[in-house]
Design a protein around this nucleic acid. Sequence first.
DNA 1: TAGGATACTGAACATGAGTTCAGCGCGTTC
DNA 2: GAACGCGCTGAACTCATGTTCAGTATCCTA
Lengths: 244, 244
Amino acid sequence: MSSARSTDDRTAAARIRDAAIVSFGQAGFDKTTVREIAAAAGVSPGLILHHFGSKAGLRAACDEHVIAEFARSRNEAVDSGTTDPFAAMAGIEREAPMMRYLLQSLREGSEAAATLFDGLVEESARLMEHSVEEGQLRPSDNIHDMAVILVAWQFGGLLLQEHVARAFGAEPLTAAPAPRHIRAVLEILTHGVFADSRYEDAWNNLESSGEPPPHGETTAPGRGTGSGAGGSAARKRTSEAKER
Amino acid sequence: MSSARSTDDRTAAARIRDAAIVSFGQAGFDKTTVREIAAAAGVSPGLILHHFGSKAGLRAACDEHVIAEFARSRNEAVDSGTTDPFAAMAGIEREAPMMRYLLQSLREGSEAAATLFDGLVEESARLMEHSVEEGQLRPSDNIHDMAVILVAWQFGGLLLQEHVARAFGAEPLTAAPAPRHIRAVLEILTHGVFADSRYEDAWNNLESSGEPPPHGETTAPGRGTGSGAGGSAARKRTSEAKER
DNA sequence: TAGGATACTGAACATGAGTTCAGCGCGTTC
DNA sequence: GAACGCGCTGAACTCATGTTCAGTATCCTA
């Protein structure tokens, strides 16, 4: 009957690791106890330490496994010629606890998360460049930086899933975003939010005029990330020195 | 700074609460110990329990205070006629630990975070509508939904600050985003990322044809949140050299 | 088949953290 | 002036949790 468990019955170490990925992904590293993982994997707490040395060692193993798994799935996507990276990731996201693990890692700031984040940025940038050539995306000389932002927004939105879902009156657990959600995202990514390019122009003027990047006061339109509203852009001068 | 103690020395309870906001904001609720807070506030651990009943009670008090404080600062912004919500928030964000507290709450999913998130969405939507009337934002019949997304992205990006900063080669601790960051955000919010409205149109057709929202496969362009697309490099010169 | 290593268990240990509690100083009230 | 209440202390308690360890079963090798 090993056929049911496709990869045959995993070794105890693998069961522990998989159970840990699930638990860490659900409750986070700190709130998950070794005993819980042991119970979920059907082994004794001692065995975990026997195999992984410590709880931290277990996490390291999970990190490594998840990173490898993501890399594998990415390669598969590339091989199969999928153009959309998130279509590829959707498969993972939907059923696998690994996405939850990734999100928790992102939340907790583990090192694995940094690796994955950087990998996703790089890959997204590459795919975006490809899409520009295909005429799907608008050209820009900032593709890489935009990829950073878009990946951050993507995962940031996922981190706040609960709140976003609540706002859209959807179940927080659903993997698929609510139609209203999709619609709003599409609208923003298709048209932007500003009525014209005044803010962008103002910023470009600021930069090209050799002005050193304003610190602390840039917030007006630049920070617009969030609400976009944006006030009077460039006319904010500042005396840097004020500091503290 | 001595003279600054305008409100005279706060009561021990207030000192505890303020110290807790700082500590919770830096390390998170779980990783902060009652003893640490006590030390920071210059009181004994026992006093914290005396005043707040429990560590959870202390958090509740912090939540309440932060929520009230945010509401106050919002009202002030409204009274002073500030058009840009994030300009108003920048004041808080820059110097106050409350933003850090908020972000940690968002990370940990506390109830206060939900309240604040919803409040910010509502306020952003209102301000965005106002900005549309002023001609700064492009009109839309989805303003509220877009506000949800933008607030989520804003805070999501803040949650991933560390990774974003790393990608831009900036210090993770800096409050002000890197120039490259601002530039990329402005570009996206000004022009969007798609070359044309094909994805939006496709989605609208899907919806108007009465199709139930596709599940799990919507990902292609819809999910575009993240990388959706790609661009051409065009990389080149520009401010890069200057930066650093 | 013997012997040893490896997988594994479960009780015990150590520590850290939240919480309890008896008591102290001090201002206020009767 | 004594009694009371309140803010406050700090040692002690309890419990959860990561970790250790002595011991047992199981499998591989000579």
